Amino acid sequence: MRTKVAMIACMFVVSMVLSSCNHSKQSSNSKMEDNKMKNEVVTSNEPLFGLGESISANFTGEAWLQPLSSVDEYDCSLYNVTFAPGTRNNWHSHAVGQILLCTEGIGYYQEKGKAARRLVPGSVVNIPANTLHWHGAAPDSRFTHIGITPKVGENSAEWGDPVTDEEYNVAVKL
């Protein structure tokens, strides 16, 4: 029963985040339309939920982490991760799995032994339990995703080696 309640709570939080993204995008679009009428250009250097704090452990390149939600009763953690162009995290796995909701830029996700998948805003990645993988930005684009870690209490991450430049270049077809 507790697991069902936690999953429902996690799904509620995700739906609220997505609703917020959609509302923000609609507000942003109407502001952009208003400004286009005034011949002004609007750009944002900040990801939707802000840049957050710089993180370096288990990453090649510059990355930032912005915690979004981690209510104990939900047993689910949500966080925004932004990767500078060419940045990626190390090979790693999650005991229970992970979900990525891509919100900005172009990125890649790759499971060990498989071809990389190109990610764009709106891409959703459901990462199975104990699957060795990495994710990060394209060489020429910043990339942001919301990470969702379900069952935080039992979902430890196991970090491995960095993704080599050769592995990265093959994955993104440089």
Results as ranks from 00 to 15, higher is better:
Met1Val: 15
Lys4Phe: 15
Lys4Pro: 05
Ala6Pro: 00
Met7Lys: 14
Met7Trp: 12
Phe12Glu: 15
Val13Trp: 04
Val13Glu: 09
Ser15Gln: 14
Met16Gly: 12
Val17Ile: 15
Val17Gln: 10
Leu18Arg: 14
Ser19Gly: 15
Ser20Cys: 14
Cys21Pro: 06
Cys21Thr: 12
Lys25Glu: 14
Lys25Gln: 12
Gln26Trp: 10
Ser28Trp: 14
Asn29Lys: 12
Ser30Trp: 11
Ser30Pro: 01
Met32Gln: 12
Met32Cys: 07
Glu33Lys: 12
Asp34Lys: 14
Lys36Val: 11
Glu40Arg: 15
Val42Ser: 08
Asn45Leu: 14
Pro47Thr: 00
Leu48Phe: 07
Leu51Thr: 08
Gly52Trp: 07
Gly52Gln: 05
Glu53Ala: 15
Ile55Trp: 06
Phe59Lys: 04
Phe59Gly: 03
Phe59Asn: 07
Thr60Lys: 13
Trp64Lys: 05
Trp64Val: 03
Gln66Met: 14
Gln66Leu: 09
Pro67Thr: 09
Ser69Asn: 13
Val71Cys: 13
Asp72Cys: 05
Glu73Arg: 13
Glu73Pro: 01
Tyr74Cys: 15
Cys76Asn: 09
Leu78Ala: 10
Thr82Tyr: 08
Phe83Lys: 05
Ala84Tyr: 08
Pro85Val: 05
Gly86Thr: 03
Thr87Gly: 06
Thr87Ile: 07
Arg88Thr: 06
Arg88Tyr: 03
His92Asp: 01
Ser93Asp: 02
Ser93Cys: 03
Ser93Thr: 06
His94Trp: 00
Ala95Asp: 09
Gln98Lys: 00
Ile99Met: 11
Leu101Tyr: 11
Cys102Arg: 06
Cys102Ala: 10
Cys102Asn: 09
Thr103Gly: 05
Ile106Phe: 04
Ile106Ala: 06
Gly107Val: 03
Tyr109Glu: 05
Gly113Glu: 01
Gly113Met: 02
Gly113Trp: 02
Ala115Lys: 09
Leu119Lys: 01
Val120Thr: 12
Pro121Phe: 07
Pro121Val: 03
Pro121Lys: 01
Pro121Met: 04
Gly122Leu: 03
Gly122Phe: 04
Val124Ile: 13
Pro128Thr: 06
Pro128Asn: 04
Ala129His: 00
Ala129Gln: 01
Thr131Met: 02
Thr131Leu: 04
Leu132Met: 11
His133Cys: 02
His133Leu: 00
Trp134Met: 00
His135Cys: 05
Ala138Ile: 02
Pro139Ala: 14
Asp140Ile: 01
Ser141Tyr: 07
Arg142Thr: 14
Thr144Asp: 07
Pro150Asp: 06
Lys151Met: 15
Gly153Val: 06
Glu154Ala: 13
Glu154Ser: 14
Glu154Cys: 07
Asn155Asp: 05
Ser156Arg: 13
Glu158Asn: 11
Trp159Asp: 01
Asp161Gly: 04
Pro162Cys: 01
Val163Ser: 02
Asp165His: 10
Glu166His: 09
Glu166Ile: 09
Glu167Arg: 02
Asn169Pro: 00
Val172Ala: 02
